[in-house]
Design a protein around this nucleic acid. Sequence first.
RNA 1: GGCGAUGUAGCUCAGCCUGGUUAGAGCGAGGGAUUCAUAAACCCUAGGUCACAGGUUCAAAUCCUGUCAUCGCCA
Length: 520
Amino acid sequence: MSHLKRYITTPIYYVNDRPHIGHVYTTTICDVWARFQRLAGHDVFFLTGTDEHGQKVEQSAEARGVTPQALADENSAEFRRIMGMFDLTNDEFIRTTDPRHEQQVQSLVKRLMDSGDVYLGTFEGWYDPGQEEYYTETKAREVEFKSPISGKPLERATEENYYFKLSAYQDRLEKMFKDHPGIVRPDARRNEVLGRLREGLLDVPISRTNFAWGIGVPGAPEHVIYVWIDALFNYITALGLADSDSEWYSDRSEYWPAGMQVIGKEILWFHAVIWPALLMALGLPLPECIYAHSFWISEGQKMSKSLGNFIDLEQLQDYMETYGSDALRYFLATQGPLGATDSDFSRSQFHETYTTDLVNTLGNCASRTSAMIGKYCEGACPEDTGECAGGGVEWSDFTAAQVEASIAAMEKFDLSGSIAAAMSIVRQVDAFINDTAPFKLAKDPDSAPMVGNILYRCAEAIRIATCLLEATLPDRVQQLRTAWHLGEASGDLRGECVWGRLEPGTTIEKVALFPRVETS
RNA sequence: GGCGAUGUAGCUCAGCCUGGUUAGAGCGAGGGAUUCAUAAACCCUAGGUCACAGGUUCAAAUCCUGUCAUCGCCA
């Protein structure tokens, strides 16, 4: 058994946003992965947090008449609250206003300045004084060199900014994608990046001077480090990785490089190109995988402010109250937009998934098995003496194959594939019961040993399936562990999933894991 | 405008790369049989111009071209 260090990150959430399903989704799928790795005995570090600097926060704070810090404190707390609300097991919650983060970012930028990867450059462009923003040449032409807001003419202006020498990394990035095609997934997203990479890279500005809410550039405090570069560094500042002499340095740095960095597709470019280039510039190893998921749409329509159809925390809580937190996790993990296309979050589909998979398949199978053990075996797990007519399942081989498939799928962040492998064991149990019909055999007392053999296999298979499902369904699997007296997870997932670990004689109580929910 | 993706049964999708029996799965719907179980599991049924139009081929959902639609990224 290995005890690998495995580091998984969510993006840090922008405090100017209202928490909604997107944040819960990203964090939940990371949570499933993190729990799964822990169950497999790995040493996991699961990071999330909030991104708090930038002009938008400054403006929002001003509009509300509070300091940016006060606004950030309030909204960061709101995001932190989500973690408890949805039982998310992040090991750390970083804020970009944490002193440890701010100081390390300065030290990282200093290193980049010293190495020449960050330089002071001059930007010249069309400036809209009213909006305090620059337009690109084409955009400026489009608006006929007049502000689309005020109608006043744009001014030709220059500005000194610090730039990151991204252009110098073109070849190395191309090589990275060639040598490690799995570094950005899914494939459609990688192709998107490759297409854009082919167009060539320009140096990117990493500082601004027209607002103040951010981390100052070392030695040039009138320059504020752009929020996105500030934010990207959270993944390593949370580990205290910036500088081995600093007070923030710790053995947490051993978690780097990250095994899985999950993001939404809107921030792909920063994570798939700029982030690796920054790491190269710093001489740090690259993450194993940047996984960019797609978005949820709501009842067939894109979520938008104008439509007001955001699936917000209240709605998600409502789902949890009606169906249970595991049901929400299961839906997000199995029906979510891990692929290239967006997924629809609809009440009917949620209900259908819950009823089909959790009530009718997993819940019912555990129920019928435990009910029969109750009736025919006096509630004690029978012994498998080897003889069994019908069924035709090599249980030991079959479950071993599914266990490996489930672990392998999770390794690739294919949550639904991993869950499907576990569920296939449950479906096999149902088929096995129908084939062998222990409930018929039970009418003949001479068949009692055979009934016991059959039911042992059913219970054992369900036990193994639920070990694999525990990361997704922690609450209900715990309920099963209690009712079937299975003890706690050992931290050795493979070992636990070896056929035959269920002890004959164990008390098996009847369970109803997922109650049917009637639609109104 | 540039680049890319997608368009297959009511719904969600697989198949397409490596063309070849009656185009598949799950869910939903209809029917049947059964009772260990959460009216569950099981069996049967659904007859969908594989977006459209051309082309290549003995043969195309599968390769090529064009059109339309949807979506993404970029500008």
